[in-house]
Design a protein around this nucleic acid. Structure first.
Lengths: 144, 144
DNA sequence: CTTGTTGCAAAGGATTTGCACGGCT
DNA sequence: AGCCGTGCAAATCCTTTGCAACAAG
């Protein structure tokens, strides 16, 4: 499988765009960090490497990353966009603790299958989906 | 089953708040309209009945409607909040056509059950969830 | 009088955009 | 020269909030 960074580079080339130092730094930070970072968080981390990079460039680059298929924008309910890795990691859904904010990536093949079937019953061919499960985790329920 | 409007009124009373003409108009418009209206759209419709109502009041009232349990905020991906009726209509998920924007409310009990089980496997007790299925509908695929 | 409500305008927060400059071809 | 990319600041969009006036108990 191709490296995500390479996928990005090829996407850039194919569209007559340019691989710039800023873009490389942002991609690098994005790929290195775990979890679901906001643009703000990515911006902070990139600045540690190069504090001349502007926030607008982070916004613009994250859009490119999404277009190229290595990133995916997710929304957890606060008004902020977050990004997670898409290329090279399987699809997953989100299980979020409403008490502590903990966020698990989960997957259930049976649900995936039923989603396809449900869509088909309505005449749809699915291209993607997003599922967010909200609840309270063990720790927050005070379970020993 | 109680009328949604009554549920709202009782919620208002229980919390030491007041039933005002503005709130009544907004609830009325919200309950009358179908679909998933944005605050802006609700505001426009309310203004036709009473053009003195302010947009801030619509925002504030929609929050009350959510708290009282008769409305639910949903996000389809553009940056705008939409509201749908919650009380008196069962829970459902969304099946959205990416080509024409058509939006179906769907439900699959088996998926609902599996979601509970999936959460339980991770030590969570679910309080709610949101599932958005994106695809292309029959019409848009050019099927006869 | 006290408490909650309202419209307005100002403020906020996140994201986008206009622009002049800079680098590469 | 011709493009694309960049940082900055200004602009936008959606939503919230401060405030003075108001209404009801």
């Amino acid at each position: 499988m191709k490296e995500p960074a390479q996928v990005f580079t090829e996407y850039i080339a194919k569209n007559g765009l340019k691989v710039t130092p800023q873009r490389l730094r942002i991609v690098e930070v994005f790929l290195r960090e775990d979890g679901h970072l906001t643009t703000e968080e990515l911006y902070e981390r990139v600045k540690k490497v190069d504090n001349t990079v502007g926030q607008a460039t982070v916004y613009r680059t994250m859009k490119l990353l999404c277009d190229s298929g290595i990133a995916k924008e997710v929304h957890f309910g606060d008004g902020v966009a977050r990004y997670e890795k898409k290329y090279g990691s399987e699809h997953h859904d989100h299980l979020i603790c409403e008490a502590c904010g903990k966020n698990l990536e989960v997957i259930d093949e049976q649900i995936e299958l039923l989603q396809e079937q449900l869509a088909a019953r309505h005449g749809f061919v699915l291209t993607s989906h997003r599922m967010y499960l909200y609840g309270v985790c063990d720790d927050c329920r005070g379970k020993k």
